[in-house]
Computed example of a mutant assay.
Amino acid sequence: MIITVIRASPQLQSPMYFFLANLSFLDICYVSTNIPQMLVNLLTKRMTISFPGCAAQMYFSLAFGMTECVLLAVMAYDRYVAICQPLHYTTVMNRKLCSHMVVASWTSSLLSSVVINSLVFCGPNTLNHYFCEVPAMLALACADIALTEMVVFTFSILVVFIPFLLIIISYGRILLTILQIQPAHGQSKAFSTCGSHLMVVTIFYGTEICMYMHPKSRSPRDGDKVVAVFYTIVAPMLNPLIYSLRNKDMKRALRRAISRPKSLFV
């Protein structure tokens, strides 16, 4: 619904909503890698998955997760330019740059996932997890995983920690700029503009860092499974709600679409 409303509403044709439409599509892809197989296992009571299916699930889950990390950093940069350099916003955040940043987010993550998704397994195994996640799969590898663990940790820094650091820097600059705004109304409007993105960042990055940046052990902890469910299922489910319910323009466009549904398809 969010993607359709953004495409059909002339007042939502800005970089922020372009990135939001991409985030919504990404969340659809993200949950589609794990939820269907999990539901099949729960309904049929057959807690099995084929090796090709598990490898594909791990690849796409990892790729989409890394894409979301980079895309959230891109959205933070968009908010930084909009608030800290408003006179240059339309020039800097032009359509070409926005498209290039989105393509770079997807391409870099899809290629990086190929490098990480190269483990060797020996025969049937019991996976101590709800779905095929990299930390859980490392415990099943029969070859030496020292190099793989180093690669995973390196990519965790490049794709998780560095974008998170860029987000912190962007919002630090935004906070300093907001505090210099004299009218209280202007400050509250600027805070509300960034509030929804900060909520998404806190939910997603908090759980991702807990999973990939803590010391690993050969046997996955039960807490890791809960954390994984949170950032692969709960966070993508909450993202559209947070962005739509905390955004006045989006709420107006949604109300208009509900009252005049034919306008979405004109």
Rank of each mutant, 00 (worst) to 15 (best):
S99I: 09
A76K: 00
R95Q: 05
V103R: 08
L97G: 01
N117I: 13
V92L: 06
Q85M: 12
T90R: 02
V92I: 15
V74T: 11
Q85A: 13
G123T: 12
L110R: 00
T91V: 06
S112Y: 11
Y77R: 06
V120T: 15
W106D: 07
V114T: 15
C98R: 07
D78A: 08
S112D: 10
M101C: 08
A76V: 05
V115R: 12
Y80P: 00
L87P: 00
T90C: 07
Y80L: 13
A104G: 05
Y80D: 02
I116K: 09
S99H: 07
P124A: 15
L97K: 05
A104H: 02
C122Y: 07
T90H: 04
C98L: 01
V92P: 00
H88R: 12
T90D: 09
G123M: 08
Y77V: 07
S118W: 14
D78V: 14
A76N: 01
V92F: 01
L111S: 07
A104P: 04
H88I: 03
L87I: 01
M75H: 00
K96I: 15
N94A: 04
M93S: 05
V102K: 00
T126H: 15
R79H: 12
V102H: 00
V74Y: 01
V103L: 12
T107S: 11
N94W: 00
I116C: 13
I83W: 00
K96C: 14
I83D: 03
H88G: 02
M93E: 03
C84H: 03
S113L: 02
R95P: 04
Y89W: 05
M101I: 12
V115H: 11
S105E: 02
M75C: 12
T126M: 15
P86Q: 08
S109R: 01
N125M: 12
M93W: 01
V81T: 08
M101Y: 01
S105C: 14
L97E: 00
R79S: 10
S112H: 06
Y89I: 04
K96P: 03
V120D: 14
L110E: 05
P124C: 10
V92S: 03
R95C: 07
M93V: 09
G123K: 08
A104T: 11
S105N: 06
L111D: 04
W106N: 09
L119M: 15
L87M: 10
A104D: 03
Y77K: 06
T90K: 02
L97A: 05
V114R: 11
Q85E: 11
T90E: 09
A104E: 03
S112N: 12
R95D: 07
S99D: 10
S108L: 13
N125A: 14
I116R: 10
T126K: 10
A76I: 07
L110T: 07
L87A: 12
M75N: 02
C122Q: 14
Y89Q: 10
